[in-house]
Amino acid sequence: MRENPLDLTGRIVVVAGASGGGLGSAVTRMAAENGATVIAVSRSQEKLDEHVGPLIEQGLAVITVTADVEEEAGVTKVMDAVRDAPGKLHGLVTVVGGGPPPSWGNAGKLPRNTWHELFSKNLDSMFFISQAVTAELRRQKLKGSVVAISSITAIGAQPYNVAYGAAKAAVLSVVRTMALELAAEGIRVNAVAPGAMTSPASLLPPNPELERQAIPMGRKGDVAEIANSVLFLLSDMGSYLTGQCLTVDGGISVKWSHLREDNTPLLITNEPFLTAMKAD
């Protein structure tokens, strides 16, 4: 292990979905600031110029690649850039995906094409670039780390967003399977499942009152807080972690629906008992 276990100097890290100005951009910055040569991938060169360009201007080692990793040609283009980049391949972060409001709706009425579209966007994109990166790591006999961005919708139900939740749950299954297949070769595969976070891609406007009611920590997470968790798994700090899903959600996933705003059970109406609990 390196003296500074967060140090990524001399290592190549691919970030698929780097240009949205949210989590992917934050991971790109954080990995580059810790010494990595980052292959920043997006379908939009315009967005890469906007959100990743400033990092290059600052002198950080970031190489932009315009590619769609849902497609074989896009994956090939990314891997060509990896082979041309200075350093040794080490990591991959898959931030690609999403479930925009047009895909929301009752599960019983979800169009077939919407189902396939969200699985391609969230699962295919993650799987095929992961397959290519881990194959290259194995070819070069290198250890490395893959971090897939899943979602808390993969852990608990989110009504009216069934395709997105199912695809992100499938991502976790891929992570666990690949982790076992690759563990003996020193290639770690993990996931991060974010909850609500502040991001340009956020589907919900800020609502401090609702956030206080729904999130035990009382607020959305900042993308930098999620990126910190990604960096932990990507780096040597996570050297003995594989096949895991790190849930970073301010406590949402462990709060049962029958809990009050102060996290005491709704079904308990005995006031002396409630008072005694709150006194602690």
Results as ranks from 00 to 15, higher is better:
residue 4 N to Q: 13
residue 9 T to K: 14
residue 10 G to Y: 12
residue 11 R to E: 06
residue 14 V to K: 15
residue 16 A to Y: 11
residue 17 G to Y: 01
residue 19 S to P: 13
residue 23 L to D: 06
residue 27 V to D: 00
residue 30 M to Y: 06
residue 31 A to K: 09
residue 33 E to H: 15
residue 35 G to E: 05
residue 35 G to L: 04
residue 38 V to G: 07
residue 38 V to K: 09
residue 39 I to W: 07
residue 39 I to T: 02
residue 44 S to P: 03
residue 46 E to N: 00
residue 51 H to D: 15
residue 56 I to F: 15
residue 62 V to D: 13
residue 66 T to K: 04
residue 70 E to A: 15
residue 73 A to N: 15
residue 74 G to F: 04
residue 74 G to L: 07
residue 76 T to L: 09
residue 80 D to P: 01
residue 80 D to Q: 11
residue 83 R to Q: 02
residue 83 R to E: 01
residue 84 D to K: 11
residue 86 P to L: 08
residue 91 G to T: 14
residue 96 V to G: 02
residue 99 G to N: 14
residue 102 P to W: 12
residue 102 P to L: 11
residue 106 N to V: 02
residue 106 N to G: 06
residue 107 A to K: 05
residue 107 A to R: 10
residue 108 G to W: 05
residue 108 G to C: 03
residue 108 G to V: 04
residue 109 K to H: 03
residue 109 K to C: 01
residue 117 E to C: 08
residue 118 L to A: 05
residue 124 D to I: 14
residue 128 F to M: 04
residue 128 F to D: 01
residue 129 I to K: 05
residue 129 I to A: 03
residue 132 A to P: 11
residue 135 A to G: 13
residue 137 L to Q: 08
residue 141 K to C: 00
residue 142 L to G: 00
residue 145 S to Q: 08
residue 146 V to L: 07
residue 147 V to K: 05
residue 147 V to H: 06
residue 149 I to L: 12
residue 152 I to T: 13
residue 154 A to P: 08
residue 155 I to H: 03
residue 155 I to L: 06
residue 158 Q to G: 13
residue 163 A to R: 12
residue 165 G to Q: 00
residue 169 A to G: 13
residue 169 A to D: 09
residue 174 V to T: 08
residue 176 R to M: 11
residue 178 M to Y: 02
residue 180 L to I: 08
residue 182 L to E: 06
residue 185 E to S: 11
residue 186 G to E: 02
residue 191 A to G: 10
residue 194 P to R: 13
residue 194 P to K: 12
residue 198 T to S: 02
residue 199 S to F: 09
residue 201 A to K: 09
residue 204 L to F: 15
residue 205 P to H: 09
residue 216 P to K: 01
residue 218 G to M: 08
residue 221 G to T: 09
residue 223 V to R: 10
residue 224 A to P: 00
residue 225 E to I: 14
residue 226 I to V: 15
residue 227 A to D: 11
residue 233 L to W: 07
residue 236 D to V: 12
residue 239 S to I: 04
residue 243 G to K: 06
residue 243 G to R: 03
residue 244 Q to I: 12
residue 245 C to Y: 13
residue 246 L to C: 01
residue 247 T to A: 09
residue 254 V to M: 04
residue 256 W to D: 13
residue 258 H to A: 03
residue 262 D to A: 11
residue 266 L to Q: 06
residue 269 T to W: 07
residue 269 T to G: 03
residue 271 E to D: 15
residue 276 A to P: 12
residue 276 A to R: 15
residue 279 A to H: 14
residue 279 A to D: 12
residue 279 A to F: 13
